[in-house]
């Protein structure tokens, strides 16, 4: 599998900003040990949109969390721009997240007591080179709704606020964990369009987790995970735009 991955590498001829090697993760759940990752090797290249596809329990979220510096592996390494994240201290990981990573979660995770715009500001206030929160909301098409509280927004709108929040700091990488998982297909497509637009216009490397095969068609590459392994990596020669997706 490593070989095939290397082949992809030469094929795309792009710089790898993440290099994942031999990653394992074991959770102790009471008396049972859960092997979430069993040795994953993977690269992410600058500017690409990758879909991580797999059934629930295949380890995709764990992988994404470790790449995003939210969690540490049991063994193996993750290198970001030649910096070994697995050796980083808590403080360095915080710094890494603050500067480089944007997250989008399945359940949006907005702060309920802040308006849409304030939910974006909460990130821009600590970022080094952020965009204007209003611009970020404009990119996801929510300029009109910027003063609404999460409870006043639909699920799709909340998720788009979450995307605006994630991109507003101009991150190097956007990590999305089932961003459409809680949405109907119509709304989901609007959200995916926002992500696609960010990827195209800002060139932000985007990793998107889903268990929905249909979404995979919009990716540059599709990485299949199964029971903690990478089972297959596919390159989409013809990307579909989110608007063309049907599920």
């Amino acid at each position: 599998m490593k070989e095939s991955l290397l082949k992809e590498n030469t094929a795309t001829a792009k710089t790898a900003i993440f290099e994942v090697r031999g990653l394992t993760k074991v959770y102790g759940m009471g008396e049972v040990e859960v092997h979430a990752l069993r040795g994953v090797d993977m690269d992410l290249y600058e500017g690409e949109l990758v879909v991580l596809l797999g059934p629930s329990g295949s380890g995709k979220s764990t992988l994404l969390n470790i790449i995003g510096g939210l969690d540490g592996p049991s063994s193996g390494t993750v290198t970001y721009m030649s910096k070994n994240l697995t050796l980083a201290t808590d403080r360095e990981l915080t710094e890494y997240r603050r500067r480089h990573v944007g997250f989008v979660f399945q359940f949006y995770n907005l702060i309920p007591s802040l308006t849409a715009k304030e939910n974006v500001s909460i990130v821009t206030e600590i970022a080094e080179n952020p965009m204007d929160p209003a611009d970020a909301l404009a990119i996801v098409g929510l300029s009109e709704r910027k003063d609404h509280f999460p409870a006043q927004l639909s699920g799709g709108e909340q998720q788009r606020v979450a995307i605006a929040r994630a991109i507003a700091k101009n991150p190097s990488v956007l990590l999305c964990d089932e961003p459409t998982g809680a949405l109907d297909s119509e709304t989901g497509i609007v959200v995916l369009e926002a992500l696609d637009r960010v990827n195209r216009e800002l060139g932000t490397t985007t990793a998107l987790i889903t268990h929905n095969m249909d979404i995979a068609s919009m990716a540059d590459r599709v990485i299949h995970l199964k029971a903690g392994h990478i089972s297959e990596v596919l390159i989409n020669s013809e990307k579909l735009s989110p608007g063309e997706l049907v599920w």
Binding site: L70, T94, E95, R97, R98, V101, F103, N109, I126
Partner: peptide
Amino acid sequence: REQIAILKAFGYDNLE
């Protein structure tokens, strides 16, 4: 705790 996690995910440190 979720909100705290979000803040941390976006790079707020423990002190903040």
